[in-house]
């Protein structure tokens, strides 16, 4: 495991743990998701650059486009949630619990 591989794996897992364990705001959860996507972008582009594979280098761009779509859908859901629930706190999302 090279240092770069260690670094982006650690950043991804940190983002995942942040998303999983303690989230007050929906926006913080979305930010953690963005952090995970960022580490994946770094991973894909560094894979391309390290292996000098030119034909693979569009893939980080495509991934960035898709993660932008995901982020915008998340922000739209943030707006929709704050309309219906009045807040973006994740504790307020409790009307479906068992």
């Amino acid at each position: 495991m090279t240092p770069v591989h260690f670094a982006f794996s650690t950043t991804f897992i940190l983002g995942l743990m942040g998303l999983t364990f303690h989230r007050n705001h929906l926006l913080s959860a979305l930010l953690c998701l963005e952090g995970m996507m960022l580490s994946l972008y770094v991973a894909l582009s560094l894979w391309t650059l390290q292996l000098n594979s030119i034909s693979f280098s569009p893939t980080p761009m495509l991934m960035l486009a898709f993660s932008a779509c995901e982020a915008s859908a998340g922000l739209a859901l943030l707006v929709a949630t704050s309309r219906t629930h009045g807040t973006d706190r994740l504790q307020a999302l409790n009307i479906l619990q068992c």
Partner: peptide, 26 residues
């Protein structure tokens, strides 16, 4: 810096500061 930035995001500050941490990571 990459790892520290994501620790700053993941340690559950307010969204304002978390976004700042994400800018550092980027």
């Amino acid at each position: 810096g990459l790892i520290f930035g994501l620790i700053a995001v993941a340690s559950n500050p307010s969204p304002y500061f978390a976004a700042l941490g994400l800018v550092v990571v980027a």
